[in-house]
Simulated assay, not measured.
Amino acid sequence: MVTGFEPFGGDDVNESWEAVRRLARDRYALAPDVELVTARLPVTFAGATAALAGLVAEHRPDVVVATGLAAGTDAVRLERVAVNVVDARIPDNDGEQPVDVPVRDGGPTAYLTTLPVKAALVALHAAGLPAVVSNTAGTYVCNAAFYALRHAVEPSPGVAAGFVHVPRADVVPAADAARALGVVVATAVAARHGAAHQAPVPAGTEH
């Protein structure tokens, strides 16, 4: 399962959802036997966290890659840590702007990704895609969604779940961001189910 976000902050598009849509269309790096579910999340603290919990319960995925936009970065960011804090610099799309509150009352201070981020990083670089491992997903809706996702899959050991930030399209084109998501998913599927599921990473061009 791969998710992206609706536009926010006055933008007409959200590059994370554009990348997810292209991945669903072109299935970069995904083997034919991989069943892909995609969803667009609202950029709201309440809506995004509830939607992810519902999607996990409904689909029971083996691998979940939630994605969001990181406007100030020049590389795909494989997020390592989700923290249990919300500190919104701008209101969400519901007009809510929580400050210094937990994502989940009584929850753990943080969750670590269960995606194989270092293996994904190697695969992304081999595919010629700019990527880094990041140790902070911020304190806005992306981090809240990442935290809620990890909380939702916690009762299911072995599920690979985490968060990936993509840059603006003028830095990393949507087709390349989609290829990157495909590489991350394929790497996680291979790690969970064995190398038989891994497909070659195509060079990839705009379709």
Rank of each mutant, 00 (worst) to 15 (best):
A191W: 00
A186V: 04
P202T: 10
A57E: 15
T113E: 12
A29E: 08
N14P: 00
P32T: 13
D170V: 05
V164W: 01
H207V: 13
Q198H: 15
L181V: 02
A110S: 15
A191G: 04
D12E: 15
V34G: 08
F146I: 13
G107Q: 08
V63F: 00
T49S: 14
G194L: 11
A71K: 11
D62E: 14
Q97W: 04
A29W: 04
V65Y: 06
L78C: 02
V85G: 10
A53K: 15
V171E: 04
L23Q: 07
E96C: 06
V132T: 13
L30T: 06
E154T: 11
A196T: 10
F146G: 06
A50W: 05
A70Y: 10
R104G: 02
G107C: 11
N135K: 03
V171R: 12
A71Q: 13
N84F: 05
E206Q: 11
N84R: 00
A188R: 04
L55P: 03
N14Y: 04
A178H: 03
R179M: 09
L69M: 08
T187F: 02
L149D: 11
A137S: 13
A88S: 03
L55R: 10
E15C: 00
V122W: 07
E35K: 13
A137K: 01
Y111V: 05
D11S: 13
V37P: 01
G158K: 03
R60Y: 11
Y28K: 06
G47M: 07
P61S: 08
D176P: 00
A110K: 02
T136H: 00
A46T: 14
E58N: 09
I90E: 15
N93P: 09
G194D: 12
S156D: 15
D62W: 06
R168H: 09
P7T: 00
V65L: 00
V43M: 02
D105G: 10
H59W: 14
T73F: 00
V99I: 13
G4W: 03
L124A: 03
H165G: 03
A175G: 00
G47C: 05
P7Y: 08
D176V: 06
G128L: 00
A196Q: 15
A203D: 14
M1A: 12
G54E: 15
A19N: 03
Y111H: 15
E206D: 14
T3A: 02
D92P: 01
L149F: 09
F45P: 06
A180M: 03
A39M: 01
L112V: 12
F8W: 14
L30P: 04
A186Y: 04
V122L: 12
A178R: 02
A137L: 03
K118G: 00
L23K: 02
A195T: 15
T139W: 07
Y147T: 05
V101S: 06
R80V: 10
A31S: 15
D105P: 08
L124N: 05
A123D: 15
V166F: 05
G138N: 03
A190P: 03
A51F: 09
A127T: 07
G162Q: 04
A119L: 10
A188L: 07
V189S: 06
C142A: 05
A203G: 12
R40A: 13
A53I: 10
